[in-house]
Amino acid sequence: MRSFSEYNPIAVTVWFFSVTGIAMFSSYPLLMVMSLVGGAVFFTVRNGFSRGREHIFFWVLFLILALANPLISHNGKTVLFVMNHNPVTLEAALYGLNSAAMIVGVLYWFRSFTQIMTSEKLLYVTGALSPKLSLILSMALRFVPLFSRQSAKINSAQKAMGLYKDDNIIDDIKGKSRVFSILVTWALENGIITADSMEARGFGTHRRTQLRRFGFRAADIALLAASLALLGVTAAAVGSGSLDFMFYPSVSTAVPDKLGKAGLIAYGALIMLPIIIETEVSLRWRYLRSGI
């Protein structure tokens, strides 16, 4: 009984990149709408209505992107009106809307992705590519906050010793630059001890393995297979040109053939996968609980 975010990180990553990859490499408006709506709904379902600020940010960005294109690009046949001697065209406006939907949709997906992929899931996924890369990432994740904490400590120590004599900006900047230079020394010093500790524990004696905290269960494999299959169908539809859409010089589209329709349905199903999983989990849980 796992919710979607608890599935094997590799399966989840593949799913995420399938959804966003299609959105990024296609320009078919219906796909863009599906991605945008799907991304927004997925984010809202995960977070409830608590992230108002982020929603506002995404939609303001959407407006700016949608409006910017017709103001800058003057391609297209159908002139809506003329502003400052420049024609504003219907095609450019539609293109703006379409690309705004693509960008904001992808941003929504990635926002959810960063929430789901905690640092250890990220390590697991990079570890599958290379254990060394994963170790470097893990050390960086430790070191960056460590550096900023030490910097704060040095600053307050220096303040209480009167390093910053006057309350003015120039003095502050001078003080901060001195703190930065010793921080570099400190980091190197620290690095030597860490390196000793690594060597003492056998770093470099053998090819590294990696502890796997996530296994592949049947459901993970099913998710992975479903994602790849649906991706394949959609990618075939996009790649074969049956989902081509031209904005310039005038809006024109091929009527989707069978492959195109299959691609649209497959993409819809791909986006629905987490919702299907969540529904299945909650139904099963309700059934199991009724037996307790």
């Binding site: 640092s119 250890e120 390590l123 254990p131 170790l135 893990s138 050390m139 994740l141 430790r142 860490t194 500790s197 690594m198 524990r201 056998g202 770093f203 470099g204 004696t205 053998h206 590294r208 393995t209 990696q210 502890l211 905290r213």
Partner: peptide
């Protein structure tokens, strides 16, 4: 060496 407790425990054996 690493950022997580479990990873620190595993570090030597991974090496």
């Amino acid at each position: 060496v690493t950022d997580k407790v479990w990873h620190e425990l595993a570090f030597g054996l991974e090496n």
